[in-house]
Design a protein around this nucleic acid. Structure first.
Lengths: 242, 242
DNA sequence: AACTATTTGTTCGTATGTATG
DNA sequence: GCATACATACGAACAAATAGT
């Protein structure tokens, strides 16, 4: 007897989702371009609008497309980002499955290594970006959000520099998670978390191409930061907005 | 004049999704329990069924609930898993943003550390599980899938043992990604990837509580495995199913 | 074994909001 | 201002699955 395979009884919206996702991942619909309109998709897939809409909504909520209304509107493919990863980590945190010390431990293990890797790939362009970021940390800001952005910029640059997209993706997600956790505490305590010039040593070591020094500086920076983060987290426990 | 803010700019399905997700993350609907039926939700949220279904579909595709039909069916909340992360990594790989060497580099940096951590948290229960997993690697199997499962079991146990949920989540996702990549190559080459007893040294060191030895054994194992994986990947490039 | 009730899956018609030209 | 093209939303209906009677 041949072993008969079960008939595929997958949901219609799942099939549509899979095909759309494949087209995006394969690059058949490039970033900036848009998917066919809902009406067109209903015709091509031979399903109802509701099915198509479910699939598109999933694509939107997972960061693959962004929707725009009106004529020349539709589902526009976004450049690949780390939304899905960030959301995954954030959800784990919100579900209280993740503690600050755990996050700190992982960052402390990953980021010094990334700083080491980054220092081996220094280029004039990256050097310029690092120097600008360092300078920007000291410049006056007019909003709290802007300050947070500037204080995380060096981390993002190093993640990009390390030459490993997977490291970059993981680190980006962790930085964003840290960012959101910090956002949950009251602004007046942020001075303790991020003094200006906090990343000077790291950037300097990376620019010099000194991997050991960069890793060491990153470790020192993170140890200090993580300690402060744990402290304010204990104080403001339970204030995070969902 | 006060600057009046726009009433509702967010989509209805997004609001519904946010509220359902919050209820799940807060534990107000526990794992195993089910959300109210679609009809009930339409009444509570005062929106149409299509809107509710879009939200539920997103929850399903992101791994928060699984659907069941029929009476006593519905959207059942799943225990928290790592689906979202795994999918994120897999999508990056499918989009050709991720190479095997990059994956190898990250695993080589993370897993030895996790083995070290695991060795410091050995308990009789974990010891038993490790010994069983080691023994199972040598036992005959009747399916290819079963063999793959047994060869990854030690990694999953160590991830669980390391005592850091974030490490565990990341590693789980990376192992699963590796698994799916391996699945894409032809079975006849799998012997080169995974000899039985491949994890003996690691498990032994962890059981002995020797962190350094465990990390070293893990590094040696991964170096060998990653090299083989890179080789077969080059051979079978482009055969991965989407 | 057959029927019933409940719940998800799917479709269609229609109406409305929004942005472009 | 108007027509157009698109997403958004609603409601009614029917199909399919499945637990209980």
């Amino acid at each position: 007897m041949p072993d008969f395979r079960p008939i595929k009884q997958t949901r219609a919206s799942e099939e549509v989702l899979a095909q759309l996702k494949e087209a995006i991942l394969r690059g058949q619909v490039k970033a900036g371009e848009k998917l066919p309109s809902e009406r067109e998709l209903t015709e091509q897939f031979q399903v109802s609008r509701g099915v198509v809409r479910e699939a598109i909504r999933v694509l939107e909520m997972t960061g693959f497309v962004t929707m725009k209304q009106g004529p020349s509107g539709g589902a526009f493919v976004t450049g690949l980002n780390f939304d899905q990863l960030s959301n995954g980590f954030l959800d784990m945190y919100l579900a209280n499955k993740l503690t600050i010390p755990e996050l700190n431990q992982v960052r402390l293990h990953i980021e010094p290594e990334m700083a080491r890797l980054a220092s081996q790939r220094i280029t004039p362009a990256f050097r310029l970006r690092l120097e600008k970021a360092i300078a920007a940390e000291r410049a006056p800001v007019d909003s709290y959000d802007e300050r947070m952005e500037r204080m995380t910029e060096v981390h993002f640059i190093l993640a990009e520099m390390c030459g490993n997209y997977l490291f970059e993706a993981i680190d980006n997600a962790l930085i964003k998670l840290t960012h959101q956790i910090v956002d949950a505490v009251k602004p007046e305590d942020h001075d303790a978390l991020h003094g200006a010039g906090e990343h000077d040593e790291i950037a300097q070591a990376v620019i010099e191409g000194d991997g050991e020094k960069a890793a060491k500086a990153m470790r020192a920076h993170l140890e200090k930061f993580c300690q402060e983060l744990s402290r304010v987290d204990l104080i403001y426990k339970g204030l995070m907005k969902y």
